[in-house]
Nucleic acid binder design. Sequence first.
DNA 1: ACACTACTTTAGAATCATTATAAAGTAGGT
DNA 2: ACCTACTTTATAATGATTCTAAAGTAGTGT
Lengths: 138, 138
Amino acid sequence: MENKDIFIKKLRSSGLRPTRQRIEICKVLYDRKKTFHFTINDLSKILKKKSNEKISLATIYNTVCAFKNRNYLKEISINSSKSYFDTNVSNHHHFFNESTDELIDLKNEDVGNIKLKKKIPGKKIKSVEVLVKIQDNN
Amino acid sequence: MENKDIFIKKLRSSGLRPTRQRIEICKVLYDRKKTFHFTINDLSKILKKKSNEKISLATIYNTVCAFKNRNYLKEISINSSKSYFDTNVSNHHHFFNESTDELIDLKNEDVGNIKLKKKIPGKKIKSVEVLVKIQDNN
DNA sequence: ACACTACTTTAGAATCATTATAAAGTAGGT
DNA sequence: ACCTACTTTATAATGATTCTAAAGTAGTGT
Ligand SMILES: [Mn+2]
Ligand SMILES: [Mn+2]
Ligand SMILES: [Zn+2]
Ligand SMILES: [Zn+2]
């Protein structure tokens, strides 16, 4: 399991000791090929299924928050009821399927280049992101 | 006060009786020239100052929610901690000033036309909105 | 104007996501 | 092995939002 070493590095560089629980969290987050979009509740349920450890919500929040601060995870705000996180930390755009509450990455090339014609003096731009809300054709 | 009649119509068409409290809420929301972006807490504080009535949070939530359902208000999700509402109910884009937690409208013409090159079969697009996060120059 | 009924207001409780607390457990250095 | 700082976890606290139910009010009809 060479990935484990990568996870340990991720944890250490986030200021966290590599513990059993945190390694399990890393496996769910990063042991996959595609981008993972999730809520804390999603992550918690997956951990309950896939891992033998019981991992408390406090530990999950703690680890996710540290990864977010270290820019190993990105937070996405879609609606007020809960927070989404994204293993794709680059600036990018999203579809949000309101029928399934599912987030889907949009590649930057799938969205024409966005040129802002308005500037605000004394302010710098931190990000420009597009959210496309979609629904099932009923 | 001809505006009062407009407020009464808004309320009735939202399925609400025009009460003292709801008229006060309407005044704060709609008796202004520019778009108003607010949180429930903002609105509550303004009502405490500008109005002699004491208006409970329950009434504020109730009224705002009815206006949102009737499309007299639009909800904007910026971060997970609280919900913003907008008296500009058209599809439009925003600056969000992270230094002040302030929302600012961007006109559609201030953002180049956005052409999506990716479609998702069986889904229809409900909205395409851009959020530009800005911060004070240090 | 009076009465009736359905809708409204409100204080307070309930809920839910998230954060904080603090006691018991563990990792890493010596 | 020992020490100490960091971690885990159950549990409590918080804060936004929603719910409840009792007291108040608006609209309708008389
Ligand atoms: Mn989910
Ligand atoms: Mn505000
Ligand atoms: Zn993404
Ligand atoms: Zn707006």
